[in-house]
């Protein structure tokens, strides 16, 4: 493990000051929320000295606001806290089931969806679910606050859109209207404690006849970043989310994917399975939306 310094600013101003200092000096600062990815990375070959900036003590990263229009989840909220929030579970069952898949019960006491997003692993479970739910990143830096849809926040494997001096404060979602629901599924060879071979998040809105009037589909672990798949949403729109529509959406996910072969799965396998996950997640979201 390489040498590192640790700071835990108690408010946003202090945090931004520390980040600015490092940004201008060109030294390395790394954000820590739950730390479940960072602590593992600290043990890797990269021993470059760094300052770890713990953002857990900042009020804005630790807040959940469930408003009539908007829902805000602070970036340092652990999965375990999310999953015990029954109101959120009713609004975003898919997002919460994704958060519930990260690591183990013990890990979820620390792991955050904000951290999962910033770590930008192609296989991060909460990311496709956030994209499907229409998540928007609230980013703060010296120049103020900016917002960016989650799908635009990811810039590559392990890379995100944060500029030096910036941090992710939280995630904003439009509060889902009636007959709207989401779902997330991933595939792993085990039942838990594993990394997605493929993942798919789906959010749908139905009218009173059960026809799909809005949809978002996002896929994970099948491209350098999690992707929004507009073509899959197109396939669902206007349909009753019957088998044909689900199959077409699945095929769109396969078409949008560009996976690699590795120890966790082959290109061919991932392309097939992402379609299966899309079909199944969309069916779950549909059934949830119907109530």
């Amino acid at each position: 493990m390489g040498a590192f310094a640790y700071v835990a600013p108690s408010n946003l101003e202090e945090a931004l000051a520390v980040l600015k200092e490092h940004a201008s000096a060109g030294t390395r600062a790394q954000l820590l929320a739950g730390g479940t990815d960072l602590l593992v990375q600290l043990r890797s070959a990269d021993k470059t000295p760094r300052t770890i900036v713990d953002i857990k003590k900042i009020a804005e990263t630790n807040r959940i606001d469930i408003g009539s229009e908007e829902v805000y989840i602070g970036s340092a909220i652990p999965s375990a806290v999310l999953n015990e929030n029954t109101e959120l579970a009713a609004l975003f069952p898919g997002l919460l089931e994704a958060a519930d898949l990260i690591g183990s019960t013990q890990i979820q006491g620390r792991a955050t969806v904000g951290g999962n997003l910033c770590n930008a692993s192609p296989a991060g479970d909460s990311i496709p679910a956030m994209i499907a739910a229409g998540g928007v990143c609230v980013i703060v830096g010296a120049k103020g606050t900016r917002e960016l849809p989650v799908e635009d926040f990811l810039t590559g494997v392990g890379k995100n859109a944060l500029e030096p001096g910036e941090l992710l404060l939280g995630l904003k979602f439009k509060r889902p209207g009636p007959r709207t629901a989401d779902a997330y599924l991933r595939f792993i060879p085990r039942t838990e404690m594993d990394i997605a071979v493929a993942g798919c998040g789906v959010s749908v809105t139905l009218d009173q006849n059960g026809t799909c009037t809005a949809a978002r589909v996002a896929i994970g672990a099948v491209a350098p970043t999690a992707l929004l798949v507009p073509a899959a949403a197109e396939a669902l729109l206007g349909s009753k989310l019957d088998d044909d529509a689900l199959t077409a959406a699945g095929a769109a996910c396969t078409a949008a994917s560009s996976p690699i072969s590795d120890k966790r799965g082959t290109v061919e396998y991932r392309r097939k399975v992402v379609a299966v996950l899309c079909r199944r997640a969309a069916a779950i979201a549909r059934d949830r939306a119907k109530g």
Binding site: P189, R190, T191, E192, M193, D194, I195, D262, K263, R264
Partner: peptide
């Protein structure tokens, strides 16, 4: 699921319990 996966250089690619998959309780 358990298997040693070697690359063409003979390097084991799954030298950890994440990708060398012994069953978990569930």
């Amino acid at each position: 699921n358990e298997e040693y996966i070697f690359n063409t250089d003979g390097v084991m690619e799954n030298a950890g319990f994440l990708d060398y998959r012994i069953p978990v309780a569930s």
